[in-house]
């Protein structure tokens, strides 16, 4: 997108949107498609492995599986949804595992592409969540009751309502899936771009640039790349967590009783 012309050597072409348009591996199948299938397979295999011999006193692998399940169950679902949380634990756990593995693909060597830096699957998952929490809310309270809960906050003067109700409607019904998916997509996209920038920039400085100063500076670019790889690992985990957390909290607000 941006080109800075420096005299003799070819200018540095910073990584941009074009880097995310991967060539298909075969036919219509691109790398993210393979990664999606691969992630589902390894998640299922890993979970199957942890419960191959379920025991009261868990083995190490069973303990890992239980811990993962337990985090979603006890610190996300139970806190956010309340009494009926057990019904949603399987969905939330599967969602968390799917998001986490696909996000972490962004820093796993040889794969190094976060699947959700393409927005398709985040849209689909957010749509799924949107359908789920609206369905639950309408089933629980009826259509009018659900609208009242999501757009009619109690104890508000009428002149505030004129502004507040449309805002609540937009933010609770329309914007939630958009922000849910785009938050994930945006973080993965920007994170991948950041890593590309440091690694490709370091490569350019080391191999292409004329200036000795730039060649000397190149290791610092790689070092920053490594630092930001750790930062990205953190961001990827947090984004998966936030996605599941918000899903649980949307489900929780749909099921809540205001009476």
């Amino acid at each position: 997108m941006t080109t800075m012309a420096t005299a003799p050597a070819p200018g540095f072409e910073p990584p941009g949107v074009a880097d995310f348009n991967l060539p298909p591996v075969f036919g219509e199948i691109t790398k993210p498609v393979l990664l999606l299938v691969f992630s589902a397979i390894i998640i299922f295999a890993a979970f199957r492995f942890t419960v191959r011999k379920p025991a009261l006193v868990p083995s190490k692998s069973q303990f890992l599986g239980e811990s993962f399940h337990g985090i979603v169950r006890n610190s996300i679902a139970r806190d956010m949804i309340g009494a009926e949380y057990l019904k949603f634990v399987p969905f939330l756990t599967a969602l968390f595992a799917f998001l986490l593995v696909n996000n972490l693909f962004g820093i796993i060597p040889l794969i190094q592409f976060p699947t959700f830096s393409h927005p398709g699957v985040p849209y689909a998952l957010a749509g799924l969540v949107w359908l789920l929490y609206n369905y639950l809310g309408i089933k629980r309270h009826g259509f009018a009751g659900y609208m009242r809960i999501s757009t009619w906050p109690p104890d508000v003067p009428w002149w505030v309502r004129i502004i507040l109700t449309p805002i609540e409607f937009i933010s609770n019904i329309l914007l939630r899936p958009v922000t849910l998916s785009l938050r994930l997509f945006g973080n993965m996209f920007a994170g991948h771009l950041l890593l590309l920038l440091f690694i490709l920039g370091g490569q350019y400085m080391l191999f292409t640039a004329d200036s000795i100063t730039l060649k000397v500076m190149a290791p610092f670019a790689f070092a920053m790349g490594i630092v930001f790889t750790f930062f990205e690992a953190f961001v990827q985990v947090v984004q998966a967590y936030i996605f599941v957390m918000l899903t649980a909290s949307y489900i929780g607000t749909s099921l809540v009783d205001h009476h």
Binding site: V17, F20, E28, I29, T30, P32, V33, L36, V37, S39, A40, I43, F44, A94, L95, A97, F98, T115, H118, P119, G120, V121, Y123, A124, L125, L128, L182, F185, F189
Partner: peptide, 19 residues
Amino acid sequence: PLAPHPIEIIVGLIAFLLL
């Protein structure tokens, strides 16, 4: 970059729901 790839949506949804 905001445009979704339909095949990803299809495969992703199937993979996730199956999982």
